[in-house]
C-alpha cells in the first residue's frame, strides 16, 4: 500500500460557484476591467476589516442617545463616526456591499437575528467577513423557519414572551443588531463596553455579557477519554 501515505488533496471538491468565480475573474482580468493586482489589493482590503467598528457603534449608542438616534435612522452616516466610510475603497462602495445600513435595535420585547436566505449578504464594511456558518445552507434554510431551535444550538434561549424577529437580508439593505446593554456595566467607558459587543451579538445569535470579551483567552478543555500517547 504505497499510496497509503500520499497526501490528501487540500480541497476535495470545488463548487460550481467557485469555478464560476474564477472564470469570471480571469475573463475580467483578460478584458482589462481590472488587474490581478487590483483584485489582490481589494481582497486584502476586504480581509483587513473586522467587527470592531460595529462594536464601537453599539457602545457609543449605549452611552449617547443622540448618536443612537442617528445610528437607527441613518446607519451610513453613523458609520462614519466610527471610522467607516461605506464608499471605500473605490469611491462607490464594494460590488455587493450596498450602502444602506440598517441597525436593528433589540428591546425587552423584541430580539432580532440576521440571515440571508438567498446568498450571504452581510454588512462587511462595518462587520468584516461573515463567519463560515453564516454562509452555510444549513443556517440560511433553517433560521427563517425554526429560529428558536437554531438559536438554542448557539446556546441562546429567548423567553417565549419575547418576539423573535428574523431579518432575511435579501436586497440592498444591510443589517446589524444593536443588542441591549447588559446589567453590570453601569459606569463603564465606551472602550470597556465595546469589548463585550462581539460579532455574534451583532448578528443576533448571542447576547453581550459583562464577563465575556471578544479577545478572551479560550479555556482549555481536557479530553474526557484521552487517547494514550496523544
Amino acid at each position: 500500500m504505497a499510496d497509503k501515505h500520499k497526501p490528501a488533496p487540500m480541497v476535495d471538491e470545488v463548487s460550481d460557484f467557485e469555478v464560476l468565480e474564477v472564470a469570471v475573474r480571469e475573463l475580467a482580468i483578460e478584458k482589462g476591467l481590472f488587474s490581478a493586482e487590483d483584485h489582490r489589493r481589494f481582497a486584502e482590503f476586504a480581509h483587513s476589516i473586522g467587527p470592531l467598528p460595529a462594536a464601537r457603534l453599539v457602545a457609543k449608542s449605549w452611552l449617547d442617545p443622540e448618536f443612537k438616534k442617528l445610528a437607527l435612522e441613518d446607519g451610513f452616516t453613523a458609520s462614519k463616526e466610527v471610522g467607516i466610510d461605506w464608499l471605500n475603497p473605490t469611491g462607490f462602495g464594494t460590488p455587493s456591499d450596498y450602502c444602506d445600513l440598517r441597525v436593528l435595535e433589540n428591546t425587552p420585547s423584541v430580539h432580532h437575528v440576521v440571515v440571508c436566505t438567498l446568498c450571504s449578504c452581510y454588512p462587511r464594511p462595518i462587520l468584516g467577513h461573515s463567519p463560515e456558518w453564516y454562509r452555510t445552507p444549513n443556517y440560511r434554510r433553517r433560521l427563517v423557519r425554526w429560529p428558536r431551535q437554531v438559536l438554542s444550538e448557539f446556546g441562546l434561549q429567548i423567553p417565549s414572551d419575547v418576539e423573535v424577529r428574523v431579518e432575511d437580508s435579501n436586497q440592498k439593505c444591510r443589517f446589524m443588531v444593536m443588542p441591549m446593554r447588559p446589567e453590570g456595566t453601569e459606569d463603564w467607558s465606551e472602550d470597556q463596553l465595546a469589548e463585550i459587543v462581539t460579532r455574534d451579538c451583532m448578528l443576533g445569535v448571542a447576547l453581550p455579557h459583562p464577563d465575556r470579551k471578544a479577545d478572551d483567552k479560550r479555556p482549555v478543555h481536557k479530553a474526557a477519554n484521552p487517547v494514550h500517547g496523544h
Binding site: P147, V166, E167
Partner: peptide, 25 residues
C-alpha cells in the same frame, strides 16, 4: 413584516408573536 405563523403553518402557537422581515420591490 410577517407573522411566522402566516409563513409556516406548523410554527408553534406558543411563539405566536414571532415575526420575520424581508424586503421587496
Amino acid at each position: 413584516r410577517f407573522k411566522q405563523k402566516e409563513l409556516w403553518p406548523e410554527y408553534p402557537d406558543v411563539y405566536e408573536n414571532d415575526t420575520l422581515q424581508t424586503e421587496f420591490s
